[in-house]
Structures are given as structure tokens and as C-alpha cells.
Design a protein around this nucleic acid. Structure first.
Lengths: 144, 144
DNA sequence: CTGTATCCTTATTGATACTG
DNA sequence: CAGTATCAATAAGGATACAG
């Protein structure tokens, strides 16, 4: 799925699955791709607090480009996870909100985020330990 | 983070955060990257059923290359999420298992997967509807 | 069996400029 | 304000060959 000449969709495999019919891997791939791109979860999480305008999202996320915000939003909209509401006023106004189903996903996402916050110190320590002791071999349990 | 000349680590930002100190975005990025790569979650999920050998994982995942399996496993090990046990027998044997903390993550992952399975039909429908009606403009609520 | 090293292709993201 | 179009850079992933 390359950029076909215009704003392309964010990641996400198509509805047809690439490997085989009911292969368990494929079922999973769907969500993982949905949650796996760089911005979707961040956007979903923000929208979890309530509807927001395009510009609000843009400011809140900080590192995101217009391109990626639009791409992410479109993709979420396509999957029925967020709803886009255009108010064609003088400077146009567009609001985004989680759909009911989108909210159920955002609950899962929150769980993930909670896990992250709780275990970040552990992971940081583990990484330091790993990166440190990568040279010596004493972790293969010498006396066994 | 490019491939530095050898098997490089899978995704994952470093411990230092790239934007700013306590920026909320960065906290999240940690997990999202962990869960966001193509194979980590699949591996964690398999290991959720109990320890498995390298070759078992390889067969179970189907589309994965040796390279990516090793990369993923190393990365998970580095973060203290899986434990690697080498048995230096004649044909070497290596087992991988979730650590206690790894199991807590796998619980979150399961939630995500459950969500996926439950809402896949909805998402598929939403996509079809979106892709279909992309041409006409009647969704901007003409009568408002 | 369990990896590692390379090379190569493609996917993803960012920067920038421009439009209704 | 809320996008879209292009182009360029990078990162991720796969294929293949080789090694302990």
C-alpha cells in the first residue's frame, strides 16, 4: 500500500486478508495495525475526553504534521471509530468525536496506556540492565 | 534508528525522550511503539499460552522471517517482557517465556484482541460504506 | 536448531507549498 | 481554518546466504 498519488490512507491492511482465510494471525493484524500506527492511539485518547476541532488536535499532539493528522483522522473515520462533523461557517470548522464503538476501543487503549505508565520504570531498568550486560555472558545460568 | 550494521532492534524509542521532559505524548509513545510493531503482540500472545521454543514460534506465526522473529524476541527480552533460556544441547535449544510483567502486558493485549474479534464486522462494514460513498457528498448533511 | 550479516524493496512519515 | 499535493527522507520488513 504505497501512496497512490494523493493523501494515502494510514497503514491498515485491506479487508481481504493477505495470507489465508481464517488464519488467526490475520484477525489480529486488523487491530494491531489500527493501533500500531504512530498517531491513531494518541488521537483516540484525546478524543476520549470529548469532541475536538482539527486545530485543537493539532496543537495537542505537538509533533504531528497536518498530513499525518488528516490521514489518521480519515482512517479512523473510515473504520467507523470517529465521526467528522463539518460546519461550513466562514472559516470552516470541523469537529471530530469518537463514535460509540470508537469509545469502546478507547477503553482498551486506556488500559494499554495505564499499563505503560505503571511499568515504565520497570522497562527502563530492564533496558539499562540489558544494554549494560550485553557484553558478558553470565546470564545463561552458568551453574545448571 | 536505522539498521546499524547488524541485526538492529525493533522500533521503540530510546529511554531518553525526543521531544521534552514530561510531555504526555512521550509517556505513551513507549508502549505504543512496543505494541505497535508488526510482530511483538503476536509473539506475546503466543507466549501467553506458555513457553515456546524458537522454532515453535517460527512455525506458529507463519509469515514471520527469522530476522524479524529474532529482532522481536530480543527487543521483548531487552524490555524485560520475555525471558530467554538457552539449553546448550547438541542441536541447541532456546525457550522463550513471558516474565511476570510480560504477562501483565499480555493481558492488555488480549483485551485488544478481544475487541478486534468483536468489532471486526462493524469495522468491515464501516470501511465498505466509506469506500463506497466516497464519491458522493451527501454525508455533509445537506439540510442543515 | 538458532541465530547473524547483507542487500534490497516497500511502507511510513515529514517538510513544504498551495487551495477553498 | 482545514485541508491537499508533491517530494524527499527514513524506517521497517523480507530474501537469501552463511555460521556456531
Amino acid at each position: 500500500m504505497a501512496e497512490e498519488g494523493t493523501l494515502a490512507r494510514v497503514g491498515h491492511t485491506d479487508v481481504r486478508d493477505p495470507i489465508g482465510e481464517g488464519h488467526p494471525t490475520c484477525r489480529l493484524r486488523d487491530v494491531l495495525d489500527r493501533v500500531g500506527d504512530k498517531w491513531s492511539v494518541l488521537v483516540m485518547n484525546l478524543l476520549g475526553d470529548g469532541p475536538k476541532r482539527y486545530s485543537e488536535l493539532r496543537r495537542s499532539i505537538e509533533g504531528i504534521s497536518q498530513r499525518m493528522l488528516t490521514l489518521t483522522l480519515r482512517s479512523l473515520e473510515r473504520d467507523g471509530l470517529v465521526e467528522r462533523t463539518v460546519t461550513p461557517t466562514s472559516p470552516p470548522r470541523v469537529d471530530y468525536a469518537l463514535t460509540p464503538v470508537g469509545q469502546t476501543l478507547s477503553v482498551q487503549v486506556s488500559g494499554l496506556i495505564a499499563w505503560a505508565e505503571e511499568h515504565r520504570p520497570y522497562v527502563a531498568t530492564a533496558r539499562a540492565r540489558y544494554d549494560d550486560g550485553s557484553a558478558n555472558v553470565s546470564e545463561i545460568r552458568p551453574g545448571q
